Amino acid sequence: MIMTELPWLVAAFVTGLLSAGHCLPMCGGIAMALGQQTRGDPAWLRAMKLSAHGTGRIMTYAVLGWTLGALVMLLPLQKLQPLAVAVRVLSGLMLIAMGLYIGRWWLGLTKLERLGAKLWQPVKTWFARALQNKGLAPSLLAGMLWGLLPCGLVYSALTVAAARMDAADAALYMLAFGLGTLPAMLLPALLSSSFQFSNALRRVSALALIGFGLWIAWHNGAGLWSADDPHQHHHHHSLSAN
């Protein structure tokens, strides 16, 4: 199973890395503030606190992935093969939307962020309170709440995770995705200053995500139009998320 999942985990990690063009302007300010808050601490304590922030955020991603994956498992997708394939095609389309968002060619994901912003309002207060407290436990809590920040890229990653149609797989996907976002968040925190992502690198990463999304959508779309043909059994193997 590990070998089977490895390509998807690598893809999730790389997706997180490629999201740096959005993560830096979106969350770089928060990461920088967290880094400044720990500047007076000994090096070992500062490292522990920053690790707690990142760990908490990734934990939230994993929990969200597990929850969404568990909900998808309740659907009779195995009996409705075309619907199952459609869910996987949607995950590819969401990756394309992610790439377009990072490249700033289409900002449709901001609509999802506006919806998430309504849920963020009460969490924002708890987040601010967690930041005021010192210690590893508040740092971990702040990181966990940070993971709930409205983000179209996280929503896209969750869609891909849900397409795994397995709670554990979805949690692992989001865990790998979160690990991929760590470098972009650690730089502002460690430097305690803003860090710019060049337009060229941002566009390259955006095109890579679009290409990945196109591959997923096309690969699974092949199964959509062959799913109703009883003479074609190979469509089961064409589902890249299996």
Rank of each mutant, 00 (worst) to 15 (best):
L18T: 07
M165N: 11
G103Y: 01
L186P: 02
P25F: 03
M165E: 13
A97P: 02
A200Q: 08
L141H: 08
L80W: 15
L186I: 08
M144T: 06
D229I: 07
L112I: 11
T67E: 11
R203L: 13
T4V: 11
I102F: 02
T4E: 14
S198N: 05
A11M: 12
G211P: 04
A171M: 06
A11D: 08
L80H: 15
L172Q: 02
I30G: 07
A163C: 05
F177N: 05
P230D: 12
L145P: 04
S139E: 13
P7E: 03
S91V: 07
V63W: 04
M73V: 02
Y173W: 14
C23L: 10
A167S: 10
G147H: 01
W218E: 09
T15G: 12
S192T: 15
W66E: 05
L119W: 08
L149F: 05
R46T: 08
L18Y: 00
T125W: 07
G99T: 01
G28D: 09
S19I: 01
A163F: 05
A206I: 04
L140I: 09
G180C: 01
L24H: 03
K124T: 15
L149A: 11
V87A: 10
P183R: 07
G223D: 08
Y155C: 08
L190M: 14
W146P: 02
L207W: 07
A222T: 15
R203T: 05
A157F: 04
A86W: 00
A168W: 09
R114K: 11
A171C: 11
L182C: 03
H237A: 10
G40F: 07
K118G: 03
L75S: 05
N199C: 12
I58H: 04
W126T: 10
H231T: 11
A161K: 01
V154C: 04
M1P: 15
L64D: 03
H234G: 09
I96N: 02
V154D: 01
L153G: 00
A222H: 08
P230V: 07
L75N: 03
L74T: 08
A130M: 06
Q36L: 13
L172H: 00
P42A: 13
A162R: 01
Q232A: 14
I58P: 01
A241L: 15
N220Q: 12
I58K: 01
A217N: 07
H22R: 07
A128M: 08
L190Y: 11
D166N: 12
A162I: 02
S91W: 06
T110P: 01
A189V: 09
S91M: 05
H236Q: 06
T110E: 12
F177G: 00
G99R: 01
P25T: 12
A20T: 00
L18S: 08
L209A: 04
W215H: 15
Q196C: 10
K49N: 13
M3S: 14
W225G: 02
T55Q: 09
E5W: 14
P25K: 08
G35L: 12
V72Q: 03
S139T: 11
V89P: 00
Y155D: 10
Y61T: 05
V160G: 03
L145T: 09
Q232F: 14
A97G: 04
L149D: 09
P122H: 06
C23A: 06
Y173L: 02
L17M: 10
L148A: 06
W8K: 05
G54I: 06
A84T: 05
F177W: 09
A184I: 00
